[in-house]
Design a protein around this nucleic acid. Structure first.
Lengths: 247, 247
DNA sequence: CCAAAAGTGTTGCTATTACACCCATGG
DNA sequence: CCATGGGTGTAATAGCAACACTTTTGG
């Protein structure tokens, strides 16, 4: 023993994001017990004796969310207020996660909520009704800034972080389903959803795509994607490691 | 009890910075016991039962460093590798701290080390001999990337963070001794020390100072500072809260 | 008078923005 | 043939970096 102090509980909480119906969305679970029974909150788990925080996040992804493949995650911030959990002293290390497709989460206890772009201070969260497989129930019911614990605060910080990282990292590519074949239009659609505002189409195609190319993150495949309108150049993501990342 | 898992120890570690002799410097302590006996490492402390991580940092500043006044601190990152402490499972929340003057730390067990600008990957740390009160013993002895635990890693991340925050926050003003009366030249000297490279003088005076003014962080006092050379306009820092901060 | 330090102006380059125009496809 | 979506061009603007010139002090 190094000290006699009572040790705190340490957990990880995950802010799992995806773009659904052109809207940035977060994955929440309804609490079935006190405290905050009935409220939605972030998925989380205790850190075990023989795992790192990253390990706990991986276990959380695999066990509670049943996501097996390699999911992008990064540490957000640690929250250590004494009474952030009314039961016991619990310190939580928050992580951001990104998946390209909401259907990857198949477990019934997780629900997606779109984050309404306009309100940055206190978000409006609209539930995604999974019966209709993707359709939004915009004006039906929504929970606004009423997550359990300090998860509202976490959500706000996470969204701010995601948005600023659009500028200087390759995080947007984590939202793509097929990183080996995508168009400028599709990428822009994800980009706008995360940013919560429009980006000029012409400039995005010319400059943004070109910036990615110059940083060695993507390259043109040479083939085009046909559909409505003029065929679009397709690109492939090749920057496997953390290029273009400032910090 | 929420779970039966054995709880980890949780500590805070502090990366306390200051600019000494126009060089960014960090405050370290020599370990007098195993593990890493004889190595230098960051000051740290266990988080007590009834305090937050921020509270533990404050206690660390006040008890171990005997710094009583309001010190600027911010959370850096949490380190949770299983074997980062060879004795026990210890999770550490790292904090950055900034003080304007190395003489504020009067306790004999803390030593300052300048961070040589050139090497970013693995720093060269030069001890500041406090007998000569500020003179550097450049070529005498230095410890290069040999701090205890994972503190090298923390240092690198912290310096990177400090440098990028120069661009979009008001963190440089935390390095000033007198925030109510300073010149463009003095601020630039601190700025260059943190950044580890030169910044054009004319542009700094014109654009950088003006940017601060436009963001409401500083204003001209109206009086000048005399000395060698042309008298310099003096400025006063007024942005008490976190203005201009992106995230 | 000269070196030192500071204020200010000029120029060129680069990035960003807004907008316009044209192209190629599906219906 | 026309609406739709995509590529590319242009012009105005903003910001940044390099450098020169001037100003005002101490020695």
């Amino acid at each position: 023993m190094l000290t006699d102090y009572k040790h705190p509980y340490v957990t990880v909480d995950l802010l799992l994001f995806s773009v659904i119906n052109e809207k940035l969305s977060v994955c929440l679970t309804k609490r079935d017990q006190e405290p905050f029974e009935g409220s939605f909150s972030l998925p989380g788990t205790f850190i075990h004796e023989n795992e790192s925080a990253e390990g706990a996040v991986e276990r959380l992804l695999s066990d509670k969310l049943e996501l097996k493949s390699n999911i992008y995650t990064e540490q957000l911030q640690t929250f250590s207020e004494i009474n952030r959990d009314p039961r016991e002293r619990v310190i939580s290390i928050a992580y951001i996660g990104v998946i390209p497709n909401e259907h990857m989460v198949k477990v019934p206890w997780m629900k997606w909520f779109s984050i309404t772009p306009s309100n940055v201070g206190s978000f409006k969260l609209c539930p995604l009704t999974n019966e209709t497989d993707g359709a939004m129930d915009e004006e039906e019911s929504f929970i606004s800034t009423n997550l359990g614990f300090d998860h509202d605060k976490m959500l706000k910080i996470a969204v701010d972080r995601l948005r600023s990282k659009l500028e200087y990292t390759d995080i947007i590519f984590k939202f793509l389903e097929d990183t080996k074949n995508f168009t400028s239009g599709l990428l822009r659609q994800k980009y706008q959803a995360v940013l919560g505002m429009e980006v000029n189409r012409g400039n995005f195609t010319k400059y943004q795509m070109n910036t990615y190319i110059e940083h060695g993150l993507i390259k043109k495949t040479g083939s085009v994607s046909i559909g409505r309108g003029r065929p679009a150049d397709t690109y492939s993501y090749i920057g496997g490691d953390g290029l273009w990342i400032k910090y």
